[in-house]
Design a protein around this nucleic acid. Structure first.
Lengths: 155, 155
DNA sequence: GGCACGTTACTCGGATAACAACTGTCCGAGTCAAACCGG
DNA sequence: CCGGTTTGACTCGGACAGTTGTTATCCGAGTAACGTGCC
């Protein structure tokens, strides 16, 4: 999995703590963890395309969350970066085997594919069950100073 | 995920149907689905290193399952090919952030990392719950002719 | 006929290239804010 | 003093290289079977 997923998750989490209405530049978000600004910007663009954050150009521009953190799941962020395709891509090799038909969708009928898909769904279900708000609250409980610290650091 | 996982799974499944004691060459297994022989051989070597199949050199050599299919899980095969590391590799970027410590293992304490790990565990649990024998039986139920067809094709 | 031995063909195993994806970087288009000027 | 205009700097967005991992291939080491010759 791409490393950008980790960056995107932490950046979105940090964005939950900034004043509503304030935008944060890619440079500020990158400086927070000493990440390469331009590349992080690239990941943020993916989040924009997915509708998770909105972007504003010009002075006082930057990124902000597009909707309430309670409605942004980890799956949303992961999908935005990785592009929704499953980890196991069934190539339908059964089609090339003995008795393979061209008019059969082996992604649906191949039992190996089904088993892998079940695992994939379990993974996605777990990710979809966690929202940014959940993690935000958990962090605030564990490290009460984090919201203000983050807010100041990104201001 | 590597494409070799699909090949390995189907090859292992096919191996469950050959006469016990008979070895199948990489060429036979590759010909079954018209796969590149040399590259498939490479994947099979990974299965050997993982102790899932055993290999024999020379005439009448080849590969055979190392143990009963009931004790080979899909996770075993996937891990053998992909190498047990988690899909989400936590780079511990919190260490570079404000208040980051060098003596803290953020793979354990970072809540984002924990959430991703939970999803990874759900995925692994699902894979570990399915054995080769399960799929073998399901296929035999769905396509009764498969065992003999496969046995003849690999002989 | 049975056994030992050399030969031979066959198989895996690791070392070696071609390709693609991820990672990292740069510069241009668009935009908003501020400064400036005129009324 | 106030409004409109120009300027300017700032920000995102997409186009351009470097590096790592996956895909594909080849050839050599080892081995078991086979044929041959000898007892």
């Amino acid at each position: 999995m791409s490393e950008g997923v980790e960056w995107a998750l932490h950046c979105c989490l940090n964005l939950t703590w900034v004043e509503s209405g304030e935008a944060v530049t890619a440079a500020k978000l990158a400086g927070f963890y000493q990440l390469p600004t331009a590349y992080l910007n690239r990941q943020l663009q993916a989040l924009v395309r997915a509708g998770i954050v909105t972007s504003t150009s010009g002075p006082r521009g930057g990124f902000r969350l597009a909707r309430d953190p309670r409605h942004i799941t980890l799956l949303d962020v992961v999908t935005a970066i990785e592009g929704g395709q499953e980890a196991f891509r069934c190539q339908e090799i059964l089609r090339k085997g003995p008795g393979g038909r061209d008019d059969v969708d082996y992604r649906k009928h191949c039992l190996v594919s089904q088993a892998m898909r079940r695992a994939d769904l379990a993974w996605r279900r777990e990710l979809a069950a966690q929202t940014l708000a959940d993690i935000k609250l958990a962090v605030e409980d564990k490290r009460p100073g984090t919201p203000e610290l983050t807010r100041n650091r990104l201001a």
